[in-house]
Write a protein that binds this DNA or RNA. Structure first.
Length: 449
RNA sequence: GCCCUGGUAGUAUAGUCCGGUCUAGUAUAAGCGGCUGUCGCCCGCUCGACCCGGGUUCAAAUCCCGGCCAGGGCGCCA
């Protein structure tokens, strides 16, 4: 087939007409032998042996072989099949045929082929997976990159994890809420904010729903939110993004112990559900999920310092733990573990100091090896204490005016946590770069696509 | 922001240490031709690259300087 004719085909596209799809590729089984089926998808591969041509049709759920024996199909089917190229979007109506010639035991012999979308011949990345592209090249052509099976698989797993998390929280009486992404005050904490021009006023992108979810426990009692947040940090690591998705909960009449128990149950549940529902996807990624036993190991901050000391890393009491030390810690404790009893000064202002020992707080981190997956704690519910902690952290009380006011109207004791969804996905898929588990990652250097 | 490493066809790499048959190798993709059971199809032919700028030198993909970009690490990170 000449180049000109191929170009013509890619310009004159068929209409979808009244074709509808009942079966995805993976639903085509040998038991359906003899049935007519309508398939939609993309040309993943063409193997032309001369007298017989094999088209691998890919859709969201997998692939199916469309077989075109030259002498047994209509001239229309033959010429359409000759015009096909990789990534063309097509419709195929044909007869399902049981066969011993394919690994799946089934193939489709087309009666009609529709070309529904064209594609350039030389694709920017190799979609067969023979020559894998580097992450930077992949992200530049992300729409195409996501057509490669293992890459999509990550987001199927993420979807099922999120579904498991939502239903777990719904069952326990949590209400899903939505708090503002555009906020007025820059003074919530330490990390840097993105500026927004809000009708001429200075505004910022939210870095957390923290203050809002705390206010909501006064009315809705148990809330959660799943949504993106923004941090203008200079971080350039495999586990940081400028825009990330946080799964936040906050619960009234609860303390750290209660929400830690909830969290470990949620983690176990999520691992279990994903392991069960995504067996195929996990096999594609060559990754195994170990469903954790409960309760999770609980290490105090002091125990962590001791562990590190035995490894030759001595840290002064009161400091946060540097990355290098976390990596060492991750080697000693490779799975889930909590770090509790942090020094109050190492945690953010709204974490409640212990009544008996104010230098230690009721904050906790859930670790996965060396990576911080979740952080949370009991919150300060008493206004005077919160004001004191704000002052100690050098924060401007005036910019917390509205938040502090809420504490005059019956703030209950409460606690909560926040999971980094992308980090959770890294854990569930065994990927080592957060950008791989983000559809369109935003980091210090990448703003497109 | 700092440190390290790197930038060679559409993609992935070899070559760079120690400048010279490098007229830049290989795989894959793409183009053309052939093939009736492929499934990383196969066979033949073809196309296609040294990040940008400056310098050293008889000679630069290779050495030096500057820039841009990327990867990794650190710091930062409620």
């Amino acid at each position: 087939m000449s180049l000109q004719v191929k170009e013509l085909w890619s310009m004159i596209l068929d209409s979808i007409g009244d074709w509808t799809r009942k079966y995805y590729s993976e639903n085509i089984t040998p038991e359906l032998d003899g049935k007519e089926v309508t398939l939609f998808g993309w040309v993943q591969e063409i193997r032309d042996l001369g007298g017989i041509r094999f088209i691998i049709l890919q859709d969201r759920e997998g692939t199916i072989q469309v077989t075109i024996p030259r002498k047994k199909v209509s001239p229309e089917v033959l010429s359409k099949s000759e015009a096909l190229q990789k990534r063309y979007s097509i419709g195929v109506k044909g007869i399902i045929k049981k066969t011993i010639m394919t690994p799946r035991g089934v193939e489709v012999i087309p009666n009609q082929i529709k070309i529904l979308g064209g594609a350039t011949a030389q694709l920017p990345i190799d979609i067969t997976g023979n020559t894998p592209a580097n992450i930077d090249v992949r992200l530049d052509s992300r729409a195409l990159d996501l057509c490669i099976e293992p890459n999509t698989t990550i987001f199927k797993i993420q979807h099922h994890a999120l579904e498991a998390i939502r239903s777990f929280l719904f069952e326990r009486g949590f209400l899903e809420v939505h708090t503002p992404r555009i906020i007025a005050s820059a003074s919530e904490g330490g990390s840097a904010l993105f500026n927004v021009d809000y009708f001429g006023r200075k505004a910022f992108l939210a870095q957390s729903p923290q203050l809002y979810k705390e206010q909501l426990v006064m009315s809705l009692e148990k809330v959660f939110e799943v949504g993106p947040f923004f941090r203008a940090e200079e971080s350039h690591t495999r586990r940081h993004l400028s825009e990330f998705v946080s799964i936040d909960i906050e619960q009234a009449f609860a303390d750290a112990k209660v929400v830690m128990h909830l969290l470990e149950q949620l983690m176990q549940h999520t691992c279990k559900i994903v392991k069960e529902t995504c067996a195929k996807e996990l096999a594609t990624l060559n990754h195994e999920i170990v469903v954790p036993n409960l309760p999770f190991k609980r290490l105090t901050y002091d125990e962590v310092l001791n562990d590190l000391k035995e490894e030759g890393i001595t840290l002064p009491w009161g400091d946060d733990i540097p990355t290098q030390a976390f990596r060492t810690l991750g080697r000693i404790h490779p799975y889930f573990y909590y770090i509790t009893e942090w020094p109050t000064e190492s945690k953010v202002f709204y974490i409640k100091p212990r009544t008996d020992k104010p230098e230690i707080c009721e904050g906790f981190d859930l670790m996965w090896g060396w990576m911080e997956l979740v952080s949370g704690g009991t919150r300060i519910a008493k206004k005077e204490l919160l004001v004191k902690r704000l002052r100690e952290n050098g924060l401007n009380q005036e910019s917390f005016k509205y938040h502090l006011e809420a504490f005059d109207y019956g703030m209950p004791p409460h606690a909560g946590w926040a999971i980094g969804l992308e980090r959770l996905t890294m854990m569930l898929t065994g990927r080592k770069n957060i950008r791989e588990v983000t559809l369109y990652p935003r980091d210090r250097f990448r703003l497109t696509p």
